[in-house]
Design a protein around this nucleic acid. Sequence first.
DNA 1: ACAATGGTCC
DNA 2: ACTCGGACCATTGTA
Length: 444
Amino acid sequence: MTVNMSDYIEKARKLGIEIPAVSWEDIDRDIRPVLTKMEESGVKLNLPAFEKLSLKLSRKLASLEKEICDLAGKQFNVNSPSQLATVLFEDLALPTESIKRIKTGLSTSASELRKIQDQHPIIKHILEYREIAKLITTYLKPLPLLADENSRLHTHYGLETATSRLTSYEPNLQNIPIKGTYGPEIRQAFVASEGMKLISADYSQIELRIAAALSGDTVMLDAFKHGEDIHSRVASEVFAKPVSEITHSERRIAKIVNFGILYGVSAFGLAQQTGLPQDQCHELISRYFEAHLGIKQYIDEMSRLAKEQGYVETLFGFRRELYNIHSTNHYLAEADERIATNTPIQGTAAELLKLAMIKLDKELAVFCHSCAGRNLKIPDQVGDDVRGIPKIIMTIHDEIVVEAPAAKAKEISELVEKVMTEVVKLPIPLEVTVGVGDNWGETK
DNA sequence: ACAATGGTCC
DNA sequence: ACTCGGACCATTGTA
């Protein structure tokens, strides 16, 4: 047995991780039929709600466009970055010192515009215009056109990514809005069929937990073991004060630091995101690594592995080649170093979700079988093909959405939580947040 | 048809 | 010069 035990399974065992004896290739083979079923099931849209919101926002967009052109003193295409740059930085002569230069001139991206938001009332209008235009053109208009005769929307899932994550396309259901004023409204228009409920279950901080497990960082492992708020905990470390004294703003910054670590943060990037001066960000990063020697070691180890073997691997052996790790172009070489730290974490998270989906799909079948004599089926009051069978209908990187008969939703939500929580045994618990509702916005 | 820009999600 | 991982998609403007 141990003779043929793969390297990565042995590696996992040493980290105190118990994983099933499967490779990423086994996982991808077994997830495919599950994905196909999800594609065929689809998710139901509340089309009248789409129509209503679309109309409301279209009116708002038109009035914003008029206000913007009035403030600009001329008619122009607000959708055109080049025309917009001319209006802002030539016609209105707004300050350009802090604005990023791009190939074609001055950037008009939201992050740049926010820097000069106080300089002119037009900026706020433009930001709101962009937000609303995005929602209309990317979601509200196209999605209903892709729905079938039962108002169900069928995405396609792909397996070809650099990290073993899934993709979703035509349409992409993995970037449906959730933030902002209207994000929740859009999610509320993703609904359960009559007699059914939506169950949404997502892993909380799965990437940070995997980082803790893969690195063996004792401080982070300890924090997760005790169920601490990881962002507040890191805030107390980098700002050197007790958790009880951490402010909302300090926690927000620590959250950005935590994400930055997963992505291979630089002081510059952190400054960009937090709005703090770069030298203070440098200080925060130093303090972070002082408090998390295990994480520092992990990053160095991945960098070393990348240089030695030219690739890194996920927990289940998915390999990513790093072609630029030895490049004399430092920018490219450093980019590969960041990829080397991130890929095992992001990739392992993706593999755990796939494993959970494979197991859940089987468990749901078992559940249905055991319910066979208990009148589980909902009479076909709907024209579609669901009729009371619980199904996985969507996945969004760390989240699984199930559609289940209302009468069994509670029971099934507990099954979903159990399968996801127990998919592998890490030295720390995997936490899952579950919600049940009549629509996707309600399950949070 | 394609590059550039910008924006949504995890 | 230029900065933080992974995706998909819409629009503009040029070829």
